[in-house]
Simulated assay, not measured.
Amino acid sequence: MIAKLIVGKSFGGCIRYLLEREQSKVLDSAGVRDYSIKAITSDLNAQRRMRPKLGNAVGHTVLSWSNEDRDKLTLEKMEQHAREYMEKMGIKNTQYITVLHTDKKHPHLHIVYNRVDNDGKTIGNFNHWHKSRKICREMTERYGYHLGKGKAKVNRQALKGNDKLRYAILDALNDIMAKATTWKQVETTLAKYGIGIQYKYRSGTNEVQGISFEKDGVKFKGSAIDRKYSFAGIEKQLSENRAIGITHSTTENRTLADEIREVLGQQEQRSDTYEAGMGLLGDLLNMPASIEPEPDPNWRKKKKKPEEEKSRGISR
Protein backbone atom coordinates (compact mmCIF):
# COMPACT_ATOMS: atom_id res chain seq x y z
CA MET A 1 0.00 0.00 0.00
CA ILE A 2 1.37 3.40 -0.98
CA ALA A 3 -0.03 6.92 -1.04
CA LYS A 4 0.45 9.77 -3.49
CA LEU A 5 -0.23 13.14 -1.85
CA ILE A 6 -1.43 16.18 -3.77
CA VAL A 7 -2.61 19.65 -2.81
CA GLY A 8 -4.37 22.02 -5.18
CA LYS A 9 -6.77 24.92 -5.56
CA SER A 10 -9.67 23.64 -7.63
CA PHE A 11 -12.28 21.38 -6.07
CA GLY A 12 -14.24 21.56 -9.30
CA GLY A 13 -11.42 20.26 -11.45
CA CYS A 14 -10.53 17.52 -8.99
CA ILE A 15 -14.10 16.25 -8.52
CA ARG A 16 -14.75 16.30 -12.25
CA TYR A 17 -11.59 14.26 -12.79
CA LEU A 18 -12.73 11.69 -10.22
CA LEU A 19 -16.31 11.23 -11.34
CA GLU A 20 -16.49 12.04 -15.05
CA ARG A 21 -15.76 8.47 -16.07
CA GLU A 22 -17.65 5.20 -16.12
CA GLN A 23 -15.01 3.35 -14.12
CA SER A 24 -15.60 5.26 -10.89
CA LYS A 25 -17.68 4.61 -7.79
CA VAL A 26 -18.25 6.66 -4.63
CA LEU A 27 -17.31 4.47 -1.67
CA ASP A 28 -17.68 6.91 1.21
CA SER A 29 -18.28 10.58 1.97
CA ALA A 30 -18.97 13.02 4.79
CA GLY A 31 -20.34 16.55 4.78
CA VAL A 32 -21.13 16.64 1.06
CA ARG A 33 -24.11 15.74 -1.10
CA ASP A 34 -22.41 13.00 -3.08
CA TYR A 35 -25.08 12.51 -5.74
CA SER A 36 -23.65 14.97 -8.28
CA ILE A 37 -20.43 16.75 -9.23
CA LYS A 38 -22.11 20.14 -8.92
CA ALA A 39 -23.47 19.44 -5.44
CA ILE A 40 -20.17 18.06 -4.13
CA THR A 41 -18.19 21.00 -5.49
CA SER A 42 -20.69 23.53 -4.13
CA ASP A 43 -20.52 22.02 -0.63
CA LEU A 44 -16.72 21.93 -0.58
CA ASN A 45 -16.41 25.51 -1.82
CA ALA A 46 -18.96 26.74 0.72
CA GLN A 47 -16.80 25.46 3.57
CA ARG A 48 -13.51 26.68 2.14
CA ARG A 49 -14.87 30.25 2.29
CA MET A 50 -14.33 30.18 6.04
CA ARG A 51 -10.63 30.58 5.24
CA PRO A 52 -10.55 32.56 1.99
CA LYS A 53 -6.79 33.17 2.19
CA LEU A 54 -5.98 29.46 2.07
CA GLY A 55 -5.27 28.98 -1.62
CA ASN A 56 -4.46 25.28 -1.60
CA ALA A 57 -7.59 24.06 0.14
CA VAL A 58 -7.85 20.83 -1.84
CA GLY A 59 -6.39 17.74 -0.18
CA HIS A 60 -6.11 14.78 -2.57
CA THR A 61 -4.61 11.41 -1.69
CA VAL A 62 -4.35 8.38 -3.98
CA LEU A 63 -4.12 5.09 -2.07
CA SER A 64 -2.80 2.18 -4.14
CA TRP A 65 -2.15 -1.50 -3.59
CA SER A 66 -0.13 -3.97 -5.61
CA ASN A 67 -2.03 -6.06 -8.11
CA GLU A 68 -0.89 -9.03 -6.01
CA ASP A 69 -3.25 -7.80 -3.26
CA ARG A 70 -6.35 -7.82 -5.45
CA ASP A 71 -7.71 -11.10 -4.08
CA LYS A 72 -7.28 -9.90 -0.50
CA LEU A 73 -9.21 -6.68 -1.00
CA THR A 74 -12.93 -5.98 -1.00
CA LEU A 75 -14.72 -2.66 -1.40
CA GLU A 76 -15.50 -2.73 2.32
CA LYS A 77 -11.84 -3.28 3.22
CA MET A 78 -10.67 -0.50 0.93
CA GLU A 79 -13.19 1.90 2.45
CA GLN A 80 -12.09 0.92 5.96
CA HIS A 81 -8.41 1.32 5.07
CA ALA A 82 -9.11 4.80 3.66
CA ARG A 83 -10.81 5.83 6.90
CA GLU A 84 -7.99 4.40 9.02
CA TYR A 85 -5.39 6.17 6.88
CA MET A 86 -7.20 9.51 7.23
CA GLU A 87 -7.53 9.06 10.99
CA LYS A 88 -3.81 8.35 11.39
CA MET A 89 -2.94 11.29 9.11
CA GLY A 90 -5.03 13.67 11.20
CA ILE A 91 -7.60 14.26 8.46
CA LYS A 92 -10.55 14.63 10.80
CA ASN A 93 -13.63 16.77 11.34
CA THR A 94 -13.83 17.79 7.70
CA GLN A 95 -15.62 17.09 4.43
CA TYR A 96 -14.33 14.30 2.24
CA ILE A 97 -15.27 11.92 -0.53
CA THR A 98 -13.65 8.57 -1.32
CA VAL A 99 -13.86 7.36 -4.93
CA LEU A 100 -12.82 3.99 -6.36
CA HIS A 101 -11.27 3.90 -9.84
CA THR A 102 -11.06 0.65 -11.78
CA ASP A 103 -9.23 1.91 -14.87
CA LYS A 104 -5.85 0.44 -13.87
CA LYS A 105 -4.63 -3.08 -13.18
CA HIS A 106 -3.77 -2.35 -9.58
CA PRO A 107 -6.47 -1.50 -6.99
CA HIS A 108 -6.56 2.17 -6.05
CA LEU A 109 -8.88 4.84 -4.72
CA HIS A 110 -8.90 8.62 -4.36
CA ILE A 111 -9.61 10.60 -1.21
CA VAL A 112 -10.46 14.27 -1.68
CA TYR A 113 -10.88 16.30 1.49
CA ASN A 114 -11.30 19.92 2.49
CA ARG A 115 -8.24 21.34 4.24
CA VAL A 116 -10.61 23.82 5.85
CA ASP A 117 -12.24 21.72 8.54
CA ASN A 118 -15.78 22.00 9.93
CA ASP A 119 -14.66 24.61 12.48
CA GLY A 120 -12.86 26.78 9.93
CA LYS A 121 -9.38 25.61 10.97
CA THR A 122 -6.68 24.51 8.52
CA ILE A 123 -5.66 20.86 8.35
CA GLY A 124 -1.88 21.14 8.23
CA ASN A 125 0.43 19.28 5.90
CA PHE A 126 3.75 19.72 7.68
CA ASN A 127 5.97 16.68 7.11
CA HIS A 128 2.97 14.82 5.67
CA TRP A 129 5.00 12.88 3.07
CA HIS A 130 7.20 11.30 5.71
CA LYS A 131 4.23 10.64 8.01
CA SER A 132 2.24 9.06 5.20
CA ARG A 133 5.10 6.74 4.23
CA LYS A 134 5.32 5.39 7.77
CA ILE A 135 1.56 4.89 8.02
CA CYS A 136 1.38 3.06 4.69
CA ARG A 137 4.22 0.73 5.59
CA GLU A 138 2.71 -0.02 9.00
CA MET A 139 -0.70 -0.78 7.50
CA THR A 140 0.84 -2.86 4.69
CA GLU A 141 2.71 -5.05 7.15
CA ARG A 142 -0.20 -5.34 9.58
CA TYR A 143 -2.70 -6.45 6.95
CA GLY A 144 -0.24 -8.66 5.07
CA TYR A 145 -0.18 -6.73 1.81
CA HIS A 146 2.60 -6.77 -0.78
CA LEU A 147 5.67 -4.64 -0.14
CA GLY A 148 6.96 -3.19 -3.40
CA LYS A 149 10.68 -3.14 -4.18
CA GLY A 150 10.95 -0.06 -6.32
CA LYS A 151 13.63 2.47 -7.12
CA ALA A 152 12.86 4.27 -3.86
CA LYS A 153 14.59 1.41 -1.99
CA VAL A 154 17.91 1.81 -3.80
CA ASN A 155 20.75 2.95 -1.53
CA ARG A 156 21.83 6.19 -3.21
CA GLN A 157 25.02 6.48 -1.18
CA ALA A 158 26.31 3.17 -2.53
CA LEU A 159 25.87 4.18 -6.17
CA LYS A 160 28.78 5.14 -8.40
CA GLY A 161 29.39 6.39 -11.91
CA ASN A 162 26.46 6.54 -14.32
CA ASP A 163 24.09 4.84 -11.89
CA LYS A 164 24.65 7.64 -9.39
CA LEU A 165 23.95 10.27 -12.07
CA ARG A 166 20.84 8.44 -13.32
CA TYR A 167 19.31 8.26 -9.86
CA ALA A 168 20.18 11.91 -9.19
CA ILE A 169 18.15 12.82 -12.29
CA LEU A 170 15.34 10.48 -11.23
CA ASP A 171 15.10 12.01 -7.76
CA ALA A 172 15.10 15.53 -9.18
CA LEU A 173 12.31 14.66 -11.64
CA ASN A 174 10.26 12.96 -8.93
CA ASP A 175 10.36 16.16 -6.91
CA ILE A 176 9.72 18.50 -9.83
CA MET A 177 6.88 16.54 -11.45
CA ALA A 178 4.88 16.50 -8.23
CA LYS A 179 4.44 20.28 -8.62
CA ALA A 180 5.25 21.47 -12.14
CA THR A 181 2.53 22.53 -14.59
CA THR A 182 4.64 23.80 -17.53
CA TRP A 183 7.76 22.75 -19.42
CA LYS A 184 9.42 26.03 -18.52
CA GLN A 185 9.12 25.15 -14.83
CA VAL A 186 10.64 21.72 -15.49
CA GLU A 187 13.57 23.17 -17.40
CA THR A 188 14.25 25.99 -14.94
CA THR A 189 14.13 23.74 -11.87
CA LEU A 190 16.23 21.00 -13.47
CA ALA A 191 18.88 23.62 -14.26
CA LYS A 192 19.15 24.32 -10.52
CA TYR A 193 20.08 20.64 -10.08
CA GLY A 194 22.70 20.96 -12.81
CA ILE A 195 20.61 18.92 -15.24
CA GLY A 196 20.02 19.88 -18.88
CA ILE A 197 17.30 18.82 -21.33
CA GLN A 198 17.74 17.93 -24.98
CA TYR A 199 14.78 17.41 -27.32
CA LYS A 200 14.77 15.02 -30.27
CA TYR A 201 12.73 16.13 -33.28
CA ARG A 202 11.04 14.00 -35.92
CA SER A 203 13.11 14.19 -39.11
CA GLY A 204 12.31 17.26 -41.19
CA THR A 205 9.71 18.60 -38.73
CA ASN A 206 9.40 20.70 -35.60
CA GLU A 207 7.56 17.90 -33.79
CA VAL A 208 9.22 16.75 -30.57
CA GLN A 209 9.69 12.98 -30.67
CA GLY A 210 11.83 12.25 -27.63
CA ILE A 211 13.76 13.71 -24.73
CA SER A 212 17.12 13.22 -23.03
CA PHE A 213 18.58 14.49 -19.77
CA GLU A 214 22.24 15.38 -19.24
CA LYS A 215 24.23 15.69 -16.03
CA ASP A 216 28.00 16.05 -15.67
CA GLY A 217 28.44 15.37 -19.38
CA VAL A 218 26.50 12.08 -19.35
CA LYS A 219 23.26 11.83 -21.32
CA PHE A 220 20.30 9.53 -20.60
CA LYS A 221 17.12 9.00 -22.58
CA GLY A 222 14.01 9.93 -20.59
CA SER A 223 12.69 6.37 -20.71
CA ALA A 224 16.04 5.12 -19.36
CA ILE A 225 15.51 7.24 -16.26
CA ASP A 226 11.99 5.88 -15.82
CA ARG A 227 9.25 4.90 -18.26
CA LYS A 228 7.06 7.75 -17.02
CA TYR A 229 9.76 10.31 -17.91
CA SER A 230 9.59 9.91 -21.66
CA PHE A 231 8.55 13.09 -23.47
CA ALA A 232 4.96 11.86 -23.79
CA GLY A 233 4.89 10.80 -20.14
CA ILE A 234 6.02 14.20 -18.87
CA GLU A 235 3.65 16.02 -21.21
CA LYS A 236 0.77 13.91 -19.86
CA GLN A 237 1.73 14.54 -16.22
CA LEU A 238 1.98 18.31 -16.75
CA SER A 239 -1.50 18.34 -18.30
CA GLU A 240 -2.87 16.32 -15.39
CA ASN A 241 -1.24 18.64 -12.84
CA ARG A 242 -2.88 21.63 -14.53
CA ALA A 243 -6.22 19.83 -14.70
CA ILE A 244 -6.45 19.00 -11.00
CA GLY A 245 -5.26 22.44 -9.93
CA ILE A 246 -1.73 21.76 -8.69
CA THR A 247 0.26 24.96 -8.28
CA HIS A 248 4.01 25.18 -8.74
CA SER A 249 4.53 27.45 -5.76
CA THR A 250 2.37 27.49 -2.68
CA THR A 251 1.12 30.65 -1.00
CA GLU A 252 1.58 29.08 2.41
CA ASN A 253 4.71 29.88 4.38
CA ARG A 254 7.24 27.06 4.16
CA THR A 255 10.72 26.81 5.53
CA LEU A 256 13.68 25.27 3.75
CA ALA A 257 13.50 22.42 6.26
CA ASP A 258 9.88 21.76 5.25
CA GLU A 259 10.84 21.52 1.59
CA ILE A 260 13.75 19.19 2.32
CA ARG A 261 11.52 16.91 4.36
CA GLU A 262 8.96 16.83 1.56
CA VAL A 263 11.59 15.94 -1.03
CA LEU A 264 12.93 13.13 1.14
CA GLY A 265 9.43 11.84 1.73
CA GLN A 266 8.68 11.82 -1.98
CA GLN A 267 11.89 9.98 -2.77
CA GLU A 268 11.22 7.26 -0.25
CA GLN A 269 7.59 6.91 -1.22
CA ARG A 270 7.94 6.57 -4.99
CA SER A 271 7.68 2.98 -6.33
CA ASP A 272 7.95 1.82 -9.92
CA THR A 273 6.16 -1.44 -9.09
CA TYR A 274 2.77 0.20 -9.17
CA GLU A 275 1.46 3.73 -9.05
CA ALA A 276 -1.88 5.47 -9.22
CA GLY A 277 -2.81 6.70 -12.70
CA MET A 278 -4.18 10.12 -13.39
CA GLY A 279 -6.37 11.33 -16.21
CA LEU A 280 -7.10 14.49 -18.20
CA LEU A 281 -9.96 16.93 -17.73
CA GLY A 282 -11.79 19.29 -19.99
CA ASP A 283 -12.96 22.66 -18.78
CA LEU A 284 -12.99 23.26 -15.04
CA LEU A 285 -15.82 24.79 -13.07
CA ASN A 286 -15.60 28.53 -12.55
CA MET A 287 -13.13 28.79 -9.67
CA PRO A 288 -10.70 31.44 -8.37
CA ALA A 289 -7.50 31.39 -10.44
CA SER A 290 -6.51 27.79 -10.06
CA ILE A 291 -4.66 26.90 -13.21
CA GLU A 292 -1.75 28.53 -14.89
CA PRO A 293 -2.46 29.53 -18.52
CA GLU A 294 -1.45 26.99 -21.15
CA PRO A 295 2.06 27.69 -22.48
CA ASP A 296 2.51 28.81 -26.04
CA PRO A 297 2.55 25.52 -28.04
CA ASN A 298 5.20 26.94 -30.36
CA TRP A 299 7.83 27.73 -27.73
CA ARG A 300 9.50 24.31 -28.03
CA LYS A 301 9.88 24.54 -31.83
CA LYS A 302 13.36 24.17 -33.15
CA LYS A 303 15.24 27.43 -33.50
CA LYS A 304 17.45 28.19 -36.47
CA LYS A 305 21.06 27.64 -35.56
CA PRO A 306 24.42 28.06 -37.26
CA GLU A 307 25.22 25.21 -39.66
CA GLU A 308 27.76 23.60 -37.35
CA GLU A 309 25.22 23.27 -34.49
CA LYS A 310 22.28 21.77 -36.36
CA SER A 311 23.10 18.18 -35.45
CA ARG A 312 23.29 18.75 -31.72
CA GLY A 313 19.60 19.22 -30.83
CA ILE A 314 18.46 21.82 -28.38
CA SER A 315 19.89 21.96 -24.87
CA ARG A 316 18.42 24.17 -22.27
Rank of each mutant, 00 (worst) to 15 (best):
Y229K: 05
T255D: 01
W183F: 05
Q185S: 05
Q157M: 09
L165F: 02
T247G: 11
I169R: 02
G210R: 11
A168G: 12
K200Y: 10
N253T: 10
R156V: 06
A243V: 08
K215G: 03
I195A: 00
N174Q: 09
K192C: 14
A152N: 10
E187G: 07
G265R: 10
A168R: 14
E235S: 14
N162S: 11
Y193H: 05
A152R: 09
E214D: 13
L170Q: 02
N162K: 07
E187L: 11
I234Q: 05
A158R: 11
G161K: 03
Y229P: 03
E214A: 15
S223T: 13
K221F: 09
F231D: 12
E187Y: 12
I176V: 07
G217P: 06
S223G: 13
G150P: 00
A158K: 09
K179T: 05
T182W: 04
V263S: 15
G196P: 14
K153D: 03
T181Y: 02
H248V: 10
Y167V: 09
I195F: 04
G148E: 07
W183E: 01
A158Y: 05
Y145T: 02
L238Q: 04
N162E: 12
K219T: 14
E252G: 02
Q237L: 06
Q185N: 08
S203F: 08
G265A: 05
T251N: 08
N206C: 01
S223H: 10
Q237W: 11
V208R: 10
Y193F: 14
A178Y: 10
A257G: 10
G148P: 15
I234K: 12
R202W: 07
